Amino acid sequence: MALVAVTDHAAERYLQRVRGALDPKLEVTSRVSRAVEADRVEPGERGAVLVRDLEDAELVFICIEDVPRGELIVITLWEGGEDPRVPKRFTDELRRAARATPRSWV
């Protein structure tokens, strides 16, 4: 089994799509580990690794591989299919709002 780490961004995206997770990072780690063991892995763009969830085939975890550490890092996730839980127009609006908000470096 590969060592799996989850970014804060991926955990937030998971919570947007799968409600009721008490510890989203632990849940994502578990789901990705099981999917990797079941060989639900495919190459993505720019060196990414796509891991398709076992419970929901439309849920895809986008990962990068840290080869020296032997770690798979979940950086985000997306939903395929005709009827995603979070419509693209909503996630696009969140992205626009984030760009418009000034960042504080305090």
Rank of each mutant, 00 (worst) to 15 (best):
2 A>Q: 10
57 A>Y: 01
88 K>N: 12
23 D>R: 15
67 V>Y: 07
86 V>H: 08
75 I>T: 15
41 V>H: 00
91 T>N: 14
13 R>H: 04
20 G>P: 07
6 V>T: 09
51 V>T: 04
1 M>Y: 00
30 S>H: 10
91 T>Q: 15
39 D>K: 10
49 V>Y: 02
14 Y>K: 06
55 E>Y: 02
98 A>C: 01
98 A>I: 04
82 E>Q: 13
70 G>K: 06
50 L>N: 09
25 K>Y: 01
20 G>A: 07
41 V>D: 00
77 L>F: 06
80 G>D: 13
44 G>P: 11
57 A>S: 08
90 F>Y: 14
63 C>Q: 08
74 V>E: 07
70 G>N: 12
11 A>I: 03
65 E>L: 13
66 D>G: 03
36 V>H: 01
38 A>T: 00
82 E>S: 14
73 I>Y: 01
14 Y>N: 05
75 I>L: 14
28 V>F: 05
48 A>Y: 09
10 A>H: 06
32 V>D: 05
50 L>E: 09
99 R>H: 12
64 I>A: 08
100 A>F: 02
28 V>Q: 05
84 P>D: 02
56 D>Y: 01
6 V>Y: 03
13 R>Q: 15
11 A>F: 05
105 W>C: 01
87 P>N: 12
58 E>N: 15
16 Q>L: 14
8 D>S: 09
32 V>R: 08
102 P>W: 04
46 R>Y: 13
46 R>A: 15
97 A>N: 11
63 C>P: 10
75 I>M: 13
50 L>R: 13
80 G>H: 10
99 R>G: 05
49 V>P: 02
94 L>E: 15
69 R>Q: 11
100 A>T: 09
43 P>M: 03
